[in-house]
Computed example of a mutant assay.
Amino acid sequence: MGSLFEELEAREAAVRVRVEELEAEVAELSGRLELARAGLERLRIALETVAEVLAEMDPEGPVVAVDAGQSHGVASAYAGAERQVVGVLTVPNWQPGMMSDVLPSVYRDIVEVVAGAPGPVRAKQIVPRIGLPAETGKIEGARSKLKRLVERGWLDENTPGMFTPARSRAAASPNSR
């Protein structure tokens, strides 16, 4: 019976080697998976950031020319390019006496829709009223803008997802839009 035990031990050793190889593969794949997830997360954040920046840009506002060349004698791919200045607070904090006409057009439309509603409204109710299709991306973009308007004092969100005109704003100027 010695040969049967030897055969089982040989098989056990072979399976143990295979298990170790598979564990090494799993470790490598886990590392690759983490790198891929990190890349995906960076791309998602970049996409959200670009969408926010583009949404905040007021196409009717002035475009400021920016010379992107690093030195005067060197030609650049960006030389003479005109870009909108980024980093300016496009949605100002609300202050007494401030009207919605200081807001970019999309934000102004949102504030006017909320102010004209008979009660609290959701983002998905606002999107069609400002002329956008009721798609998930547009609803999420509107929700982001609504949250920004809440942060800056233009709107209130007493119940999560339900937006109303800001009480402080209504109290300061009941006839403002």
Rank of each mutant, 00 (worst) to 15 (best):
F163R: 00
R37S: 04
A81I: 02
I126D: 07
L47R: 11
R18H: 10
Y107F: 14
A81Y: 08
V74P: 03
I130P: 00
T164K: 03
E82K: 08
A10R: 11
E23R: 15
A36F: 12
E12Q: 13
L132Q: 07
R108Y: 00
V91A: 04
A27Q: 13
S100V: 10
V127S: 01
E140R: 02
G39A: 12
A75D: 07
E60W: 02
F5S: 14
V86L: 15
G137V: 01
G137F: 08
E25N: 07
V102F: 12
E7Y: 09
S144K: 11
A65P: 15
A10W: 09
L103Y: 08
T164D: 06
D67N: 11
G97C: 13
W94Q: 06
V17H: 14
N158V: 11
V19K: 12
R108S: 00
L54F: 04
P133I: 00
E21L: 15
V106S: 04
E41G: 04
L43P: 05
V111N: 01
E9R: 09
S3K: 10
G97A: 13
R42T: 05
S105A: 06
K138L: 04
G137M: 05
A24N: 11
D156Y: 04
F5Q: 12
I130K: 00
R42G: 03
E60G: 09
V91L: 14
E112D: 14
L155V: 07
V63T: 12
G119L: 02
W154I: 03
P128T: 06
M57C: 04
P62T: 07
M1Q: 09
E140V: 01
F5Y: 13
G61E: 09
D109N: 11
G119Y: 04
G69E: 09
D109G: 13
P92M: 08
S173Q: 14
I130S: 03
P133T: 02
R167P: 02
G39P: 02
V53F: 12
M162G: 01
R11D: 12
R167C: 08
M98D: 07
T90C: 05
S176Y: 15
P118Q: 06
R169Q: 08
L40E: 10
R42M: 02
G161P: 03
V86G: 01
E12I: 13
L22P: 06
I139W: 04
G80R: 14
D58Q: 12
Q70M: 03
E12C: 05
P133W: 00
A115L: 06
V63N: 00
T90F: 02
R42C: 03
V111R: 02
L54R: 10
E7D: 10
S30A: 14
L8D: 05
A123R: 00
T136P: 00
H72A: 14
A171L: 06
A24R: 14
E135M: 10
A24E: 10
F5H: 12
V63F: 00
D58E: 15
S100M: 02
G161N: 11
P120I: 08
P92V: 06
P133H: 01
A123D: 08
